[in-house]
Design a protein around this nucleic acid. Sequence first.
DNA 1: CATGAATGAGCATTCATTCAT
DNA 2: AATGAATGAATGCTCATTCAT
Lengths: 186, 186, 186, 186
Amino acid sequence: MAGSTKDSLMQAAVRLFAAKGIDGTTTREIAAAAGVTEGAIYRHFVGKEALVEEIFHRHYLPFAAELDAARGTAEGAEAELRAVVRRVYAAFDRDRDLFAFLLLAQHGPMRRIADGAATPVRVIEKLVRAGQRAGTIRRMDARLATQIVLGAVLQPATGSLYGEVSPPLIAIADQVAEAAWRAIAG
Amino acid sequence: MAGSTKDSLMQAAVRLFAAKGIDGTTTREIAAAAGVTEGAIYRHFVGKEALVEEIFHRHYLPFAAELDAARGTAEGAEAELRAVVRRVYAAFDRDRDLFAFLLLAQHGPMRRIADGAATPVRVIEKLVRAGQRAGTIRRMDARLATQIVLGAVLQPATGSLYGEVSPPLIAIADQVAEAAWRAIAG
Amino acid sequence: MAGSTKDSLMQAAVRLFAAKGIDGTTTREIAAAAGVTEGAIYRHFVGKEALVEEIFHRHYLPFAAELDAARGTAEGAEAELRAVVRRVYAAFDRDRDLFAFLLLAQHGPMRRIADGAATPVRVIEKLVRAGQRAGTIRRMDARLATQIVLGAVLQPATGSLYGEVSPPLIAIADQVAEAAWRAIAG
Amino acid sequence: MAGSTKDSLMQAAVRLFAAKGIDGTTTREIAAAAGVTEGAIYRHFVGKEALVEEIFHRHYLPFAAELDAARGTAEGAEAELRAVVRRVYAAFDRDRDLFAFLLLAQHGPMRRIADGAATPVRVIEKLVRAGQRAGTIRRMDARLATQIVLGAVLQPATGSLYGEVSPPLIAIADQVAEAAWRAIAG
DNA sequence: CATGAATGAGCATTCATTCAT
DNA sequence: AATGAATGAATGCTCATTCAT
């Protein structure tokens, strides 16, 4: 299959980035983990930064679209939120390394890239604003409400990475969705 | 004045770490920002890692103690939570760089250090368990409830660093405390 | 050609080590003398110390074996000593830098390595003990007799490095061998 | 007493130089071993090199004079040699560190300094030339004969530093002197 | 005399990247 | 496509030395 080495590199990079950070991971380590030499990286990516960006693009924006689609299938803000949380935790359970990478990449060099785009944050914000218009979500700053929900949902995922919460996360999805809902319900 | 250079170094380091990450900040940069040469770092710290650890120790554990004290002055879990959130946001407003550093250092090399100790996380957990015993907080996994509250409180701080929420945070402390409370209230 | 850069590095290192000592020679200088950049050193050696050790291993123990072989071809301790001295001085004339390096490395970090092994010192000691059993060498502490012979043979080589004795040393090999022999003959 | 710190520094330096070489010993280590701070070194010496030179001057040339005096009290080359060896080994037994330093300093930066001067080497050479004139020492290149004797005498000292020969050396002085004498006797 | 903080040049080593094969 | 050798800049750190106190 075409791109086998490229995939190995991206997979190895995700694992290492999740464990040691982007700056803390060297090209040598990535190559070694993928079973190739450093030079091979540059056959598939312009450089380390491009490798990071490609992983991010390949997963972050599609993930936002996936989330938005899940939201669209539900009726009412509460059901939408439950659908979104389920989808987030399913993604987490599917590939923890990738999720951890996405979590930390947002604080790093990916800030600009994710700026205007349809990110997961914007999906939740849309949901919040619709709920407020419908009167089911309390009147408060929508950006703030979004951050509160985001934190309530993502922090258990982070906590799971560090052993504070037991996997799989899908098992607690509805519980968290309900808690997040009460936090902002009108 | 005692410790002037050492303090300059720590202050400069916090600012740079918050902006570019620990691995992304060089000793050269820290020294330049503090107005000294690199060698001076090593008169005050064993190495870069020791500098990171000293900043962490000097602020993280004391911060947890401060939080626990704030919690102790309030009556009932709801009031306790409000007091804790106020204290957290006051700390954030006081020194955003330091708060940002503390936030990211937890994911990095500080994990072990903060392990058993009386961390902010444990302060909230204590509050949650007490509330559950008193029947004011819903019966659910205490660790999970802690993570939900933690996320609801800290994510707005993170969002503030990235322009999603307007400073000062103290202005929204009670609002957030109330939202976090509803999320877990019985 | 195999190992060209590696060989250049080792050759350059030997020359510089002989002239300025191991601690007194920098990786910068070695790389420059070999016509490469510093980084190239680390493709071939784990570090500076490993470079020193590899030079030592590649020459010191083989040299001991060569000496032992020369000893084995002669009959009687006196002839053996003459054969050994000839071989030592031939090696010196062949590569003075290498010999100088071997001489000084023995006092430095190579002490342990050469400890139990079949070193040149042990070759001479074997010769001495055999001579004593045969009655051609005086009864005295074999270790001491070995050191006396060793000094009588090596000091002219050291002296040659400093202009006290004219090269080539092979020209005085028999003379020195005879003097060393008389020193310990029965 | 005046010069107490200076003496401590020189004594500490000798010990460290003997153990780790001159380049391998740092000013920090010397200061620490002497119980002062680095700055104190520069109150007594222009720099590290001056410290090395002062130790060398204070001991090497006086030692040569002592040797020459010892030689002068004996009658005939053989007796002279015995007197010299006794004095050398007595010096070794008195301060092994100092002797080891002197031994290695000769290969290092002290070469020029010791060049024209009345060094121990020249004392032995004088003895050899006189013996050759008197007919008691074989006719051979005097510089070579000097090196042979030098090696036969000093190598057991070096060997003693490395555990090949048991101290005290004064116990084997006459034995070594006799061996060295036979090596060059007519 | 001695300290302790600071310097600035230099150290061994590592990095992301290039390129001939 | 991939390798393996090489680069050159940068990294964290150490060195001998200086100097105000």
